[in-house]
Design a protein around this nucleic acid. Structure first.
Lengths: 341, 341
DNA sequence: TTGAAAGCGATACCAC
DNA sequence: GTGGTATCGCTTTCAA
């Protein structure tokens, strides 16, 4: 309670302060007898080492900085699993997570790194191009891991879902189920504008794959979030479905449910009269009404991998060549795709 | 990029290290000329003060600890707005947010406080009784603010939504719209078990208010999350609605949409054949199909108030008497309540 | 196997 | 208005 220091522990255990330190860190062999005395003293005083002092002396904070897309109208959908997984992985390695919001921009990264507030930084919600945080992130001493793959990674490590593969999975499935026309319901203009990269990785792969199957693919975009926009898009889809077995791919996870509802409301039931595959978390897909056949975003896998990369960097001081790690998505069949005729 | 210290700044500006410190903190008058030289040096070197050293010397970390319900199968629904608002409020006062997960239990609080990792702690997701973190939180030097009101606040400051008022708003509305029978669809067993308090504050007030209107109130609980449980509950509701104007109150935000869907699927359309009022965020209510008349959870208001209280504590060293602040919820009429006959 | 002591990089008191 | 310096609490050489 009364803020004891390692000196107090040392005194009580009748050893030197350095011995206390070595008992805690295990960086030096300690006789059993001494260790016991120190540990007893530690929990007798409920001693906790001062984090600031420790960081100052050791140049290690045991903190991971996490830059999350809050504020600035950022897309917060499905963010929680990322944070949760990252926090868990950090804790498993005895680290804590310091949250910084994206709307601080490059300044946030400068602060984290410059002030030595953390040992490494995870940066999410990247703009595909001209993200002003990237040059800063690249130049800073603190290692930075990107969740997402910008056009120019500035030599930083990237981890992301394999969006190209995700598109292929979806289109292949629709092709296999005998559709003769495909539609791609795109992202809101702001996302398209901001994040050309992951968006385009998906679109391009979808186009290529559809072409490979000899299937026409209609792109409906941009489609904003919310019911009205979904309604407008659904009207287009209804028209496209006329006289066809239409398969719809929806890579904007927020748009999946509204479109499904809008189609149903227009008498075009997904799974019966039309097919829909969404790119979204398994949770939201499973909870949909009806449950949506989806390609999973796997935020937990992505985060886990990012943290593995992060700790690998921290563990070995040698400069590792930057990597791009892509997580394999999975297709889960639920109830919104028509079975082959 | 080479980690300059205030000594470097001092040398470059040809002043003493203490002057640099005073320029940054403003705790001492500085001549314009000197200030200019120091500031120039600072941004010439892109100097950032080392957080650990600063914390060590000043006994202030400028960090707020946030204990969030991750892991341990905790209810993560609607958590993000809390985190987001808290992070924003912290930043506005030049603080950062350190995330700690609930599944660490009391140990997490001990760590944060004992190691002086933060200046204050916000604790969410409280169990109403026998939460082992509360005794620790109460005994620790670091001020702790609770989001939620446990049975015994252990002398800590509490901020929460006024759940009793929320119940009253919902029941009054249903009474005003001429219903002759009410139903309350409760929480999953685990929540009821864990959080007797906020759950019961709502239930009790609902009962009392219904009684005041002379209306029979049927409680359907526990109801688990997910579609099946919602289906079962909906069957009960369908039975209750028979020959009555039934008004349903759903205080478990996760259960609102599933119940609405299940009722609709059973041919009992909310807003036409039955009334539903949910206790959930405005966002999820507005996005529902149909949009749900709701009493708002206002997580942002709650968080904002918690942060105000927190900074009030930090600003004035005098021990403030613990307070319980209840945020006023609001009823928003949407499309799931039948108009008065 | 252990101890003594020199930092780590700020802050803030005491002088001037 | 400014400078010197003890101090915060730990880690980690260097010595024994």
């Amino acid at each position: 309670m009364a803020a004891f220091t390692s000196k107090d522990v040392a005194r009580l255990a009748r050893v030197s302060q350095s011995t206390v330190s070595y008992v805690m860190s295990g960086k030096r062999p300690i006789s059993d007898e001494t260790r016991r005395r120190v540990l007893d003293a530690i929990d007798h005083l409920t001693y906790e080492p001062n984090a600031g002092a420790r960081a100052l002396a050791s140049q290690r904070t045991n903190v991971v900085g996490l830059v999350v897309p809050f504020g600035r109208g950022a897309d917060t959908t499905g963010l929680l699993p990322f944070i949760e997984t990252i926090a868990g992985a950090a804790r498993a390695r005895d680290h804590d997570v310091l949250l910084v919001t994206t709307d601080e921009g490059a300044a946030g990264i400068r602060r984290l790194a410059g002030r030595s507030m953390c040992d490494a930084i995870i940066l999410m919600d990247l703009h595909a191009r001209d993200d002003d945080r990237l040059p800063v992130a690249a130049e800073v001493r603190t290692p930075v891991i990107l969740i997402g793959v910008p056009d120019d990674p500035h030599g930083l490590h990237c981890v992301d879902l394999d969006f190209a593969l995700a598109a292929r999975l979806a289109v292949d499935e629709l092709a296999a189920c005998g559709h003769d026309r495909l539609a791609l319901v795109g992202h809101p203009a702001e996302i398209v504008h901001r994040d050309l990269n992951y968006v385009n990785r998906f679109y391009d792969a979808a186009r290529r794959t559809a072409h490979g199957h000899g299937l026409p693919l209609e792109v409906i975009a941009p489609v904003e979030w919310g019911r009205e926009a979904a309604g407008v898009a659904a009207d287009r889809l209804v028209a496209l479905a006329d006289g066809h077995r239409l398969g719809v791919v929806i890579p904007a996870s927020n748009t999946v449910q509204p479109i499904v509802h809008a189609l149903t409301a227009r008498g075009l039931a997904p799974g019966r009269d039309v097919s829909v595959i969404g790119l979204c978390t398994d949770l939201s897909a499973a909870e949909g009404e009806p449950p949506v056949t989806n390609v999973s975003l796997e935020p937990r896998d992505v985060s886990r991998r990012a943290m593995e990369t992060l700790f690998r960097l921290l563990d070995s001081p040698v400069a590792r060549p930057p990597t791009i790690e892509l997580i394999t998505p999975e297709l889960t069949r639920r109830q919104t795709v028509m079975p082959p005729p």
